[in-house]
Amino acid sequence: MDNIADKIQRLAKTLGKSAPSDPEYINYQELRKGYEKKANADIQKIQKDTKRARVLTIQGQADLNPKWRFDNLIADSDDVNEALDVANSFIGAHNDPAWRNSSSHMMIFYGDYGRGKSHIAGAIAHELIEQYEITVLYRQLSTLLDMRLFSYDFSATDGASEQYRKIQNELLNVDLLVLDEVCVNETMLKKNAQSWLGNILRQRLVNHKNCILITNHDLASLETAVGRYCFESIKEYDSYRVRFSGPSRREVIVPEAVSSTPIKQQGYTPNQVK
């Protein structure tokens, strides 16, 4: 079949005129390919920008420390390297939709302060948001319990009840719930708090929602602290447990041997590794 250039050549010959001979002349097929290429590039840019906007929205709702990233994690001990192996396996498993819909998974990071537990949990959350647009909620358990307590003040005008109901809905429905400082400075939660937390975990379990629990307790004392009902909920998950026992990454404020030499003030630099 003649292309458009051939038809123009034949028409020009019939009319006794010269056909276009511009060496930069582009036939229809080439022109169409050019337009399609540009359109595809525009669509890809729109998709990329739209995804970035969605990711930023999820990150904002998650309330994560933006500096909790794998690339600035100090991996100088066996416990951190073990946690990284678990984290990479957990993140990579999200490529399999069957895995994501088959059961509920929980990581328990436990150990002393400053060992990197929260940092790794936050890094996992950031990766899941950016790679898979997984919804995340990061909260300290004590903050949630305080909000729960304040929500019972029905005479208050600060909207605490409405805010708590919104958080309660998010606790049940986000894809990944990160609970930090679980039972910090608590030997045992009150019975009603134990039941509330256990119910949250059981409902998430039924709906195949994943969790990360971060605590300073060891596993035995954690069972005592959250109560048997709540701990039985935890045991129902496919769980991955990492004990953090390496060195603290936090700066020493009061040195072990106090020098008589005045300490030169360097300015405040917040510690980003928890």
Rank of each mutant, 00 (worst) to 15 (best):
Y25Q: 07
H94I: 00
P23F: 03
I74C: 15
A12P: 00
S118D: 04
E130K: 15
K13Q: 09
K13M: 07
L128C: 11
D79V: 01
D79G: 08
S89N: 12
K38N: 07
D49N: 08
V80D: 01
N65V: 02
A125W: 02
M106H: 04
I134H: 11
Q140V: 11
Q44Y: 01
I43Q: 15
D63Y: 13
D96T: 04
L64D: 05
D63E: 09
D22F: 02
S118Y: 05
R69E: 10
I134T: 15
N88H: 09
D6I: 06
F109W: 06
T135L: 09
R100S: 06
M106S: 10
N65S: 13
F90A: 12
G92S: 08
Y25I: 04
P66S: 12
Q61M: 07
Q29C: 06
L73W: 15
V80R: 15
S118T: 15
L56H: 06
Y113I: 05
E24V: 02
K13V: 00
R32F: 07
L31Y: 10
R139Q: 14
H119I: 01
D78L: 14
I46P: 00
L137W: 05
R69Y: 09
A53D: 14
P66W: 13
E133V: 11
Q140F: 00
I26P: 01
N88R: 04
A5N: 11
G116P: 03
S118W: 02
E24L: 10
A121C: 13
Q47N: 15
P23W: 03
M107R: 02
R32N: 12
L64G: 08
A62Y: 03
H126E: 08
K67F: 15
Y132V: 07
A121R: 03
D78G: 13
P66A: 15
A87D: 01
L141S: 08
S103N: 14
P66C: 14
I8K: 09
I120F: 09
P66F: 13
H126I: 04
G60K: 15
M107F: 00
Q131T: 13
K48L: 11
E24P: 00
